[in-house]
Write a protein that binds this DNA or RNA. Sequence first.
RNA 1: GACCCGUUGGUCAAGUGGUCAAGACGCCACCCUCUCACGGUGGACUCAGGGGUUCGACUCCCCUACGGGUUACCA
Length: 581
Amino acid sequence: MVTLTTDYTLVYFTNKLKLMEVNNQMKTNELAELLFPHITKSPAEYESLFPKRDLPEGAKVTRLGPSPTGFIHLGNLYGAFADERLAHQSGGTFFLRIEDTDDKREVEGAVDAIIESLAYFGVNFDEGAMAEGQLGSYGPYYQSERGQLYQCFAKELIKKGQAYPCFLKEEEISKIRQKQEAEKQNPGIYGTWAAHRNLTFEEIAERIKAGEEFVIRFKSHGDPSKHFQIEDAIRGTLSMPENEMDVVLLKKTGIPTYHFAHVIDDHFMRTTHVIRGEEWLSSLPIHVALFQALNWDMPIYCHTTVLMKMDGEIKRKLSKRKDPELSLDYYRGLGYHPAAVREYLLTILNSNFEEWRIENPLSSIEDFNFTTEKMGSSGTLFDLDKLNDVSKDVLVKIPAPELAQFLIGWAKSHNLELWKRLLGEVPSEESKRLAYLEKILDLGRNGNKPRKDLIFAQQIFAFISYFYDDSFDPTASDNYPENVPAEDVSKLLSGYLASYDHKDDQSAWFDKIRLLSIDNGYAAKPKDFKKNPDLYKGHVGDVSTVIRIALMGNTQSPDLWEIQQILGEERTKSRIAKAIK
RNA sequence: GACCCGUUGGUCAAGUGGUCAAGACGCCACCCUCUCACGGUGGACUCAGGGGUUCGACUCCCCUACGGGUUACCA
């Protein structure tokens, strides 16, 4: 009997609760219509409009979502390579979405600049924003054009009682923050601080009638004292507190915040892997809560490390304002080959890439199995020395004609004067000049121990400048060796000139230098000199250095004989003659 | 402040309870050599600190320190 009574009581209360829910349901429906009368499409319609992608098993869908400030930096490129590799090596799709939800920051022409810059470094998209318009059936790919979609789901969340309009003014919010600071509470709009969380329908209707502006906030039910686990493909299992913030979903302009746009877009664009910077880690609980509220599957998150640099003693994040080397234009300006930058970035992107490269020196990057597990999660220091080293190895594999084209292209856009001198002055001589440049670039690069002294365009042109009469300045030459007196310089050069025969092969040529050395009191072999330093003034190396300086103003250079062959008999002789006092 | 993430040589890092703690860049020395570059050989330089757990800890747990990030109607 007693049990029966309790049962009845329970049923009564349950029914009453259900009734209240129904009432609330009606109210939230009304509210949704009040707030978004113009939204008529249903969530289901969007689901069928953007169906799951028809891709092979295991194919990954990735995206790059830059904001159009026009500044695309090394960090973007770092992430973009990861996106690109992951998508393309799995037979998936990589798309470009422009995240232009911050109207204040937009820069004219920035999108084209982004696309051009990424393309230069070899990052190409399958769909999304393109130079010639938008491509793909999951668009539009500009967030600014997706307003209806975001509002539809804001409306949906309102209906479900998981979002609400908030009329708090800027001053009111800052007052709340001050109070929170005074009370040592966490700042933000949450819990009881969320003053408009439980406004009645009537109150809301009244404010709207009065023309008050509002934002749509997420009605959070999270408890930050509770933690949940989430897998990050780079970092492994993460433990995060539940989100309790009533974050803004839609700004007063109706434009979504990053959080909301990310969830909606990556769901409807069917992104499988979200690769983004570590700075997003703290907002992950928000995103998780939103995916749950909308009852959608989450993508796999991959939070990359930030790029750092050494600033004196301190290791710090690369900054846009202070560090020119963060900008991609920096590398283009100096003339780094895009393949070198790509190769370098891959070595810091995947820790086993370098090892693979040593074993597969000729393989294409496409053949490397890129994995998120091998990506680092601690701050990576950008290392210019390493880039230069990588660049040497990359450039040595590029055939001279191809390298020449790259250099000429660089000169044309970054140093027009240089370009004119190299190629442009007399159009009829263009092919001759090009052949000359190719010969210079190929110097010592063949054989099994190729020279590796070419790093980036600016450095290369300085390095080979002595091959060009107008950039060869004998007055700026290095000093002759200290152990060679001035009168010997003249004697040696005169002797060299007298015996010079352009048709000599390399060994005949060098035999003459040995003879010349002996005739003037220098050892024919460095070893002879080392054994008996008292017998000689120096050795054949010093004699060669004298010739080298006369010929190219430099103590350091590739093989002398080969240089003379490129310079030609006339110029070789005249440079030597001019150097004789 | 709170919350997250991280910490192996100067730098990038491999490493998941037993290793003489890989490899690469840079540095130094030597060799090759007409200079330089290349190449070769060798070297110096490492597990942030302290407690546990364990026969045994770079590896697991706790604390501290340090670095980074977030804490917006920016992304």
